Amino acid sequence: MAEQVAISPYAGSNGNRMRRAVANHMATALAIISTLLVVAPLVAIFVYLIYKGASSLNFAFFTQIPKPVGEVGGGMANAIYGSAILLGIGSLVGVPVGIASGIFLAEFGRGGRFANLVRFTADVLNGVPSIVMGISVYSLIVLPQKHFSALSGGVALGIMMIPTITRTTEEMLLMVPNSVREAALGLGVPNWRSVLSITLKTASPGVITGCMLAFARVAGETAPLLFTAFGNNFWSSNLTQPIAALPLQIYVYAISPYDDWHRLAWAGSLVLIVLIVVAVALVRFVTSRGILKGAN
């Protein structure tokens, strides 16, 4: 009688387990390498900026205006103040328009021809070079006014913020479950009130993150400000006059033949990067705390 050999269903399981372990380790290693490749440029920029610019940071840098040519010292206090004004104007222009456009696309214009046109326009506008944006605002605002101004610079930055905020707001609102909308409508809440008080509030962390991404993108723009704000070596808060900005001052100092101005340019670059990182980190921190409170 022939002997029957029982084949275990677990035969070869050790080999399969080994292959799965190798694949898992390879995927983990690739993920770690990819993360390092993303973080490495930012770390390298920070380290180099600290190396080149930290030695020029002092109290005068944050409290004084630029010194005349030939005098050592001075600071960029007026440029920091001017950048705050320009970014404030840009936010007043870009944030409301961008959020409103995103709400329309996600809640009221799904699949419509006009909505598709708005999406296409936002995508194209997002790819327009900043210098082209500056020339356009120069033609539309600066030339009719016959002078450069902080207002035109803020408008240019605000227009550049709109497409990023629009698309981010739309995507964040689309991630909100339809059951949330249906529950609000079932309670008799008007659609517009449901969108503003419930849907938008639920998606607010992502919307705020999109606003900060747009803010960070335009904070370091120089080309549009050359055609609009133009720059100023003195204190100015008049929205109808040229105004200083940190990117503009860095540009002027960087192309100058003076070593002292080169050092100040590196210091200004370091301050600009730090301000952007701190602003984004603070918003993310506040947003995450809001999520945790809501969960509790």
Rank of each mutant, 00 (worst) to 15 (best):
P177G: 07
V72M: 13
G15D: 13
I250E: 06
P66C: 12
V43I: 11
D260V: 05
V97S: 14
T287A: 15
A229I: 03
L173A: 00
A281Y: 14
N14L: 09
V280C: 12
T169E: 04
A214V: 05
D260F: 14
S288A: 15
N296D: 10
G210H: 06
P9W: 02
R20F: 11
T35S: 13
M133N: 02
L187D: 15
T202I: 06
L185S: 10
Y251D: 02
L36R: 05
G210M: 05
T168R: 03
L282Q: 15
T222Q: 06
T287E: 13
L92E: 14
I33G: 09
F61K: 01
A245L: 09
V137K: 01
Y138W: 08
S197A: 15
V47Q: 08
I250A: 08
K201N: 05
A115S: 15
I103A: 05
L248V: 09
V43D: 03
G154Q: 04
Y48L: 04
I273E: 06
L92K: 14
R20W: 04
T35Y: 12
R193K: 15
G290Q: 10
Y138H: 10
T287Q: 14
E221V: 02
V283A: 15
V132F: 07
G70I: 11
G134I: 00
L157G: 01
L37M: 15
V278R: 11
V47C: 09
P144W: 09
R181S: 15
I165N: 00
Y51D: 06
V207W: 01
V132M: 02
T169F: 03
I33M: 08
F285V: 08
S55T: 02
Q64S: 07
M160H: 01
A244R: 06
R263I: 01
Q64R: 10
L173W: 00
L185K: 09
T209P: 12
A122T: 07
M1Y: 05
N58G: 06
R263F: 10
T164N: 06
I135Y: 09
G186F: 04
Q4E: 08
F227M: 10
E182F: 07
E71N: 07
H147G: 03
N296P: 00
V252H: 14
Y258L: 14
N16E: 03
M76Q: 09
L37G: 00
A2N: 09
T228W: 00
R181H: 15
I250P: 01
L105T: 02
S8G: 13
G290V: 10
E221L: 03
Y138N: 04
L292K: 12
I50G: 11
F148A: 11
L200P: 00
G186W: 09
E182V: 05
A150F: 03
R181V: 14
E107H: 13
A115W: 07
G158H: 03
N116I: 14
L30D: 00
Y138R: 09
K201L: 08
V93L: 08
V176T: 08
P205H: 05
N296C: 00
N178R: 13
P177N: 03
A60T: 14
R289V: 14
A31I: 05
K201Q: 11
K146D: 12
E3R: 10
I80D: 02
M76S: 07
G75C: 09
A281F: 12
T63H: 10
P224F: 01
P224I: 02
S204Q: 13
Q4D: 01
